Computed example of a mutant assay.
Amino acid sequence: MSSSRAVILTHHASRYLQQLSKHWAHKFETEFTPFSSKIALPLGETRLSANDKSLTIEITALKSEDLTVLRNVVQRHIERFAFKETLEFDWQPLS
C-alpha cells in the first residue's frame, strides 16, 4: 500500500468534501459529516477533512502502482466542484 496527502487552501473545503462524498455515495461505501469523510474506492481509500481554511485529502492505494491514478481521480473531481477557483494540490507521500 502507498499513501499520499495534499492540503488545499480554500474557504470552501466543507462544500467540496460534501459534494465529493455525495457524488460517490451512490456507488461506493461512504461515511461523511460536514468536516470529515471516508470513501472506499476500488483502488483504495480516500479520507478528507475540512476546516474554514483548508481541505486535507489523504489517499491510500491498495497497490502502490495505483497511487497516481487514485490521486488523479480524486483531484479531478475536486477541481470540477471548485470550478470558480484554482486550487493547488501539492501531494506529499505519507510514511
Rank of each mutant, 00 (worst) to 15 (best):
residue 54 S to F: 02
residue 64 S to H: 04
residue 79 E to G: 00
residue 80 R to N: 10
residue 17 L to H: 03
residue 28 F to Y: 15
residue 16 Y to F: 15
residue 27 K to W: 12
residue 67 L to E: 14
residue 37 S to Y: 01
residue 62 L to P: 00
residue 94 L to M: 12
residue 16 Y to P: 02
residue 58 E to G: 03
residue 31 E to M: 08
residue 35 F to P: 00
residue 12 H to M: 12
residue 90 D to Q: 15
residue 76 R to I: 05
residue 66 D to S: 10
residue 84 K to D: 13
residue 42 P to C: 07
residue 35 F to A: 00
residue 17 L to Y: 06
residue 47 R to P: 04
residue 25 A to F: 05
residue 48 L to T: 04
residue 42 P to Q: 06
residue 80 R to A: 03
residue 24 W to S: 06
residue 86 T to L: 07
residue 21 S to W: 07
residue 58 E to I: 11
residue 90 D to Y: 12
residue 24 W to F: 15
residue 65 E to Q: 08
residue 83 F to D: 07
residue 9 L to M: 11
residue 3 S to W: 00
residue 86 T to G: 05
residue 29 E to P: 06
residue 62 L to Y: 14
residue 10 T to D: 02
residue 88 E to G: 02
residue 2 S to D: 11
residue 45 E to Y: 06
residue 62 L to Q: 08
residue 46 T to M: 15
residue 86 T to Y: 08
residue 37 S to R: 01
residue 33 T to W: 09
residue 69 V to I: 14
residue 84 K to Q: 13
residue 16 Y to V: 02
residue 64 S to V: 04
residue 66 D to W: 02
residue 79 E to F: 00
residue 48 L to I: 06
residue 33 T to S: 15
residue 82 A to H: 03
residue 1 M to A: 06
residue 77 H to Q: 11
residue 28 F to N: 07
residue 37 S to C: 11
residue 50 A to K: 01
residue 88 E to S: 12
residue 56 T to Y: 00
residue 59 I to T: 07
residue 55 L to V: 09
residue 3 S to V: 00
residue 67 L to G: 11
residue 93 P to A: 08
residue 58 E to A: 08
residue 27 K to A: 01
residue 13 A to I: 01
residue 83 F to I: 09
residue 78 I to D: 04
residue 35 F to E: 05
residue 68 T to P: 03
residue 16 Y to G: 02
residue 19 Q to H: 11
residue 81 F to E: 09
residue 87 L to N: 11
residue 91 W to C: 09
residue 13 A to C: 04
residue 43 L to T: 04
residue 42 P to K: 05
residue 4 S to I: 07
residue 76 R to H: 14
residue 26 H to K: 14
residue 2 S to V: 05
residue 83 F to V: 08
residue 20 L to R: 00
residue 47 R to W: 11
residue 37 S to V: 08
residue 39 I to T: 12
residue 52 D to A: 15
residue 92 Q to A: 14
residue 86 T to N: 11
residue 51 N to I: 07
residue 85 E to F: 14
residue 49 S to Q: 15
residue 82 A to E: 04
residue 6 A to C: 11
residue 86 T to D: 08
residue 9 L to H: 14
residue 58 E to T: 13
residue 37 S to G: 13
residue 30 T to K: 01
residue 8 I to M: 09
residue 12 H to A: 12
residue 57 I to Q: 00
residue 38 K to V: 13
residue 71 R to L: 12
residue 27 K to S: 10
residue 77 H to F: 03
residue 22 K to N: 11
residue 31 E to L: 10
residue 3 S to N: 02
residue 47 R to I: 10
residue 91 W to N: 05
residue 51 N to K: 08
residue 49 S to L: 10
residue 80 R to S: 08
residue 1 M to S: 05
residue 19 Q to V: 04
residue 15 R to H: 13
residue 38 K to W: 00
residue 69 V to R: 14
residue 74 V to Y: 02
residue 92 Q to T: 13
residue 79 E to N: 03
residue 60 T to K: 07
residue 57 I to D: 01
residue 14 S to A: 13
residue 18 Q to I: 13
residue 43 L to H: 02
residue 11 H to D: 15
residue 92 Q to D: 11
residue 42 P to N: 08
